[in-house]
Design a binder for these strands. Sequence first.
DNA 1: GAACTGAGTTTAGAAAAACTAAGGCTAGAT
DNA 2: ATCTAGCCTTAGTTTTTCTAAACTCAGTTC
Lengths: 299, 299
Amino acid sequence: MSVSPPRPKGPPLNALRAFEAAARLGGFAQASEELCVTPGAISQHIKTLEDWTGTPLFQRKAHGVVLTEDGQRLLPHFTQAFDALGNATRALRATMALPTITIAALPSIAQLWLSPRMPALRAAMPEVRFTILAMETPPNLSRELIDISLFMRPTSDDENQHILCEDHIFPVCTSEVAKQIVKPVDLLDHTLIHDESWSDDWDLWLKKYGPDVFNTQTEARYSLYSLALDDARAGAGVLMGHAALVNRDLEKGILVRPLEGFIQTDQPLIMETSPLKNAPKEVSDCAHYLMNDHRIGNE
Amino acid sequence: MSVSPPRPKGPPLNALRAFEAAARLGGFAQASEELCVTPGAISQHIKTLEDWTGTPLFQRKAHGVVLTEDGQRLLPHFTQAFDALGNATRALRATMALPTITIAALPSIAQLWLSPRMPALRAAMPEVRFTILAMETPPNLSRELIDISLFMRPTSDDENQHILCEDHIFPVCTSEVAKQIVKPVDLLDHTLIHDESWSDDWDLWLKKYGPDVFNTQTEARYSLYSLALDDARAGAGVLMGHAALVNRDLEKGILVRPLEGFIQTDQPLIMETSPLKNAPKEVSDCAHYLMNDHRIGNE
DNA sequence: GAACTGAGTTTAGAAAAACTAAGGCTAGAT
DNA sequence: ATCTAGCCTTAGTTTTTCTAAACTCAGTTC
């Protein structure tokens, strides 16, 4: 009779969290991003878990992993548990002395859409400490300690998501450059400025408005939209502008629209708020503020 | 404008678990026992958490800690979350190749009540691996990976708890010793064997049946009931017997009851089963087996 | 068909977290 | 007045976790 093997220890909590993230997101790489660690760390966590049970949780394929049946059955349990834990942690954070609101956004949105609105927001909510995070992919608001996110992405029926404005794209450039452009074909003579994160923009627009034949021509590529914008402001060429991001420049006259046509993409600017039922009042206040699209006074 | 402080990390999961345990159990010492660490470790976890939020979670008194208001508000959130996590972990364990059932019991119960029943149980469920854990205090079945617990303790209205048998106590000794004992006063001439974990037993019994005057006399104390029992079997004196634990010896004639009177304590032998809704079938099978009080054949 | 790519794995070593042990403090109990 | 239970603190150690970098493998691309 086996007596007192020192008490059965459960698997490490961090390994469980890694499993949940990897299973939910469908890959170690994605999970590693959400948890801010390297993929190797995730791999090791999963292995710990698989060694603990003796049953494989993932099936390793050359291009990613897929959940085994066991893994699929387990996932909802863990997702529910970590959702609950996320809410509890959020409640814990809410006890902090000075209320903090964390907003995550695409770098371009942070800089070109949010930044101009911040002064008014801060003025309206002086007791709140704001933190802005620039990131490429929308965070999971029920897990990370982020209250509001601003991203261009496909619509969903999530009740926590609100469309702030549709995404209209159209060519923009300085008025100098615009003088030389009266019809689409004229674009052939100019540098088309591309941004890596929206690499399809020009294709989309040209498909509808562009000249029938359109061979590759001079183009510039940037990894940050705001760099591309700077270049356009400097008269280096024609940029495909996103309404929400270039409106300020258009209003100020720094940039103009050389041609009329615009396209509405299927990825509007969406604001998502964290799903906590009893969210601190500050968060919903802030969300309303942004929805109502306040601007700084002197603009 | 503050941009990209490397992503707000939540507090360590282990610290959250420590808080939950300490808050639920009402002390660091208790929590440290449940989590199998030293109280110092708990203390540090709590401090980590308190530093993270900036608000105190516990109020330190000289004789223990009490939850602050914030702590009280937070506790249910975390309890719920960790309950869910416990269930998920249990589900994970259920995927293990060969089903395992872990039974926790008071050392004396494990040895004197459970052990004789194990051969039949193993025979009835040959595909299951059983693990018996001896421990002093009932474990939290919704947290630890233990399926069934067997303890003498006060009744509760928990639906997962079942009374296996009432706890009757009465003096027992060898038939040799019994010859010299015909009425309670005769006990004065013999060693009264005590067990540390039930130190009140003799007092209780003597209060009802004992001689009016009863000065302290020879007595032996043991920290393990089975050691006390061994001593009684060897004719060293009179032990206060618990029905569930000495029945075998009575049946076999190794021990006898020199006097008639017995007392029913308010701490029956209770079996508790883990609360998982979809508990593996093996666990409920095992529980039913124990409830029906099977014995080994040749007894 | 050779090189490339994306996703995961594996190691060793480094960094961080968690734990223990031992000494201190304080208020209620003896 | 002393004892004791329960928690705190600190230093040092052990354990866990993470990273970096090289490796594997199977589709893709040229």
